[in-house]
Design a protein around this nucleic acid. Structure first.
Lengths: 151, 151
DNA sequence: GTCATAAACTTGCATTTTGCAAATAATAAG
DNA sequence: CTTATTATTTGCAAAATGCAAGTTTATGAC
């Protein structure tokens, strides 16, 4: 097989997805940053995660993350509940407003992505989506640097 | 077809690629940031781009970008040449050292990615790579927000 | 040509983000 | 009980960001 420039491929793909995400985080009155939208996404995705868990998943320094959570709490999007078994730990969850924000962003992003996939036929779309899923799985399993326990 | 969570798929994929990229920007003595590695990548990829062109491609504010270029010049990785036809314009190019740095990062990243693809057979790999390329093309063509002229 | 307008950058702040070091609080180990 | 260890928070100080305003060069109207 010819030598592919895999790096370029990934770089361009992620950049384009980044552009897609950029504008998509203001919902009604509230506006959050890209990083903050990732936090909502991840808090929603994990089951009652601690601050440390989410920070690690996102690869953010814990001190920076602690402050980001403070902002999100001030905005009324995230809640912090002390863990019952271990009171050092703060369990994160989304408020009703946070849920709504996350869902709206989700819908928006999926809409954008669907629009891209509209240019493909069913077979092509299915192949691409299956490939992305497959690749995703393999990236998790790979031992190559930089993976986090909770990926 | 069942409803996929496309956003999640993309988000995780790009995050994982981001992790892969994170550690990979120190070459020998020199160490550059992720953003700076993107700049080297893009300056190398485009044919004698102007400052504005690269800034736009990367979606960075031009004033921020101007300063980032200054840093890279100070590090001896990038060169600025006044355009012959229009002296307002600065043409960017990599120095020999910049080229080397970019190539090393490229090699490193491709090595990591190849390692992930090693867990697939030829057919699977080819399908995935073809899917990524295909998706990339369609993202460029799509009119959905956030694309830049030079993508 | 001259003057106004616009384009390609650059600099001056002022804000935000970041992360290391150190502090705090709670648990676990011995 | 005393000493780690763990989870999180604050105190800086450095870096990144972006708007407003400046500089230099080019272009258009006249």
């Amino acid at each position: 097989m010819e030598t592919e420039n895999l790096r370029g491929l990934f770089q361009l793909l992620t950049r384009r997805f980044g552009f897609l995400s950029k504008n998509c985080c203001s919902v009604g009155e509230k506006e959050i940053s890209l990083v903050q939208s990732h936090i909502l996404f991840e808090v929603s995705r994990q089951h009652n995660p601690s601050i440390q868990q989410v920070a690690e998943t996102l690869g953010t320094d814990i001190t920076t993350f602690s402050r980001q959570i403070q902002s999100l709490i001030k905005m009324g999007l995230v809640k912090k509940t002390p863990d019952i078994g271990d009171r050092r730990i703060s369990i994160l969850s989304l408020t009703k407003e946070g849920e709504e924000m996350n869902e709206t962003i989700d819908r928006q992003m999926n809409e954008y992505l669907e629009e891209i996939f509209l240019t493909m036929n069913e077979f092509e779309k299915e192949t691409v989506v299956r490939s992305l899923k497959f690749l995703n799985e393999r990236m998790v399993k790979s031992s190559v640097c930089c993976t986090t326990p909770l990926g």
